[in-house]
Design a protein around this nucleic acid. Structure first.
Length: 109
DNA sequence: AATGTGACATACC
DNA sequence: TGGTATGCCACAT
């Protein structure tokens, strides 16, 4: 349970449906705000794990679906988000800051 | 053990 | 406004 990746996956799986978060927020929650890249890296390795990681709910700080190229289909990410009620235009989440789910504020107890 | 890597974030030209 | 450069650090090879 001391795996950095495992923590990332756990947080990502805790993201409420219809909400999104950023790599940096997760990194910050894990105590490694400067390791936001590791979060993305974790997502990259997510498929190597057996767990289901809703990586489509994780975007960069701009609310842009930067990692959509890593999904089975480039449309998969946006499609999945829209299916949850999230509007995506030009690969960018609409009202991102409203839909933004900050684990630090939501989980941190 | 050492080097390379990256789905970010920030700073600078 | 946008492309380039650098920091960052755990994982992969």
């Amino acid at each position: 349970m001391s795996d950095f990746f495992n923590d990332v996956y756990e947080v990502v799986m805790l993201i409420p449906k219809g909400r999104v978060t950023s790599y940096g927020a997760i990194a910050k929650y894990l105590g490694s705000a400067q390791s936001s890249r590791l979060v993305g890296y974790a997502m990259n390795a997510a498929h190597t794990h057996s767990k289901k990681i809703p990586a489509h709910r994780v975007v960069n700080r701009n609310g842009v679906l930067t990692g959509k190229h890593h999904f089975p289909s480039q449309n998969y990410m946006q499609l999945k988000l829209e299916k949850e009620g999230i509007k995506v235009v030009k690969d960018q989440i609409v009202d991102f800051k409203i839909l933004f789910w900050d684990p630090v504020k939501e989980i941190s107890l």
